[in-house]
C-alpha cells in the first residue's frame, strides 16, 4: 500500500500510540504543575508570585527541544539511566505546566474583583471564596484555551525525537530511512497528527462559542 508494507504502517501507528501516551503524560503532569503555578501566580503573596514567575519565565524562555536535552542528559549525569519516555515526560510536564499555569492565572484574574468582594461580605473565608465562588467561574473560562493548548501539547511531543523517544515523528524517520519515500511517509505522519489534533481544535472552538453564548 503506497509502497509501504502493512508492518511499516503498523509501525507508524505504534509511534502514534506513544505520541498519545506522551501527550497524556504532558497534560496530566502539566495540570499537576500548572494548578499550583496558577494559584501562586494569582496569589496575594509577593514571594509566591515571584518564585512561580521565575519558573514560568525560565521554561517559556527555553526552546522545548533544549528542555528535552537538558532533562535527558541532566538526569543521566546524575547517574540514572533514564528511559527517553521519562525524560520526555518530565520535559513536557515542565513545558505544559508553565503554559497552563499562565493560562489559568489569566482565567482566575478574569473573574471580576467584585465577586471576591461579594464573597467577603457574606463572611466566607478566603478558601471558601476561592473554591465556591472564583474557581467555578474560572474553570468555565478556562475550558476553551485549555483544550486549545492540548493541541499544542500533542504537536510539541514531536520534539522528543531529539532524544530518540519512539513517537510518531521518530517512527516516520525510521521508516523513511529504510524506504526512501519521504513524501509518502511524512504525509501519512502528518495525516495522523492532524487526525488527532483536528477534533480537539473543533472541540475548543465549540466550547469557545458556547462560552460566548452563555
Amino acid at each position: 500500500m503506497l509502497g509501504l508494507t502493512i508492518e511499516q504502517i503498523a509501525y507508524l501507528f505504534r509511534g502514534a500510540g506513544w505520541t498519545i501516551v506522551l501527550s497524556l503524560l504532558g497534560f496530566v503532569g502539566g495540570t499537576l504543575l500548572g494548578l499550583p503555578v496558577a494559584l501562586a501566580r494569582s496569589s496575594q503573596s509577593r514571594l509566591a508570585r515571584a518564585l512561580s514567575g521565575v519558573l514560568v519565565q525560565v521554561v517559556q524562555g527555553i526552546p522545548l527541544p533544549v528542555i528535552m536535552f537538558v532533562v535527558y542528559f541532566g538526569i543521566s549525569i546524575g547517574g540514572f539511566d533514564v528511559p527517553a519516555l521519562v525524560a520526555a515526560g518530565v520535559a513536557m510536564t515542565l513545558y505544559a505546566g508553565a503554559y497552563l499555569g499562565e493560562i489559568w492565572k489569566g482565567c482566575i484574574l478574569a473573574v471580576p474583583r467584585t465577586q471576591w468582594e461579594a464573597g467577603e461580605c457574606l463572611a466566607l473565608t478566603s478558601t471558601q471564596r476561592f473554591v465556591f465562588v472564583i474557581l467555578p467561574q474560572a474553570l468555565r473560562i478556562a475550558v476553551p484555551p485549555t483544550v486549545g493548548f492540548l493541541v499544542q501539547i500533542v504537536k510539541n511531543t514531536s520534539y522528543s525525537v531529539v532524544i530518540n523517544f519512539f513517537d510518531l515523528t521518530y517512527s516516520a524517520k525510521v521508516i523513511n530511512n529504510s524506504t526512501f519515500r519521504p513524501f509518502t511517509v511524512f504525509t501519512i505522519a502528518a495525516l495522523i497528527y492532524f487526525a488527532i489534533c483536528f477534533p480537539m481544535s473543533l472541540l475548543a472552538s465549540r466550547f469557545e462559542r458556547r462560552l460566548h453564548r452563555g
Binding site: T114, Q115, E117, A118, C121, A123, V133, Q137
Partner: peptide, 15 residues
C-alpha cells in the same frame, strides 16, 4: 459580616 449585610449597585450575584 454575619451581622451586617450589604447590597451593591451591580448586584454582584454569583453567575
Amino acid at each position: 459580616r454575619q451581622d451586617v449585610g450589604i447590597v451593591f449597585q451591580s448586584y454582584n450575584l454569583f453567575p
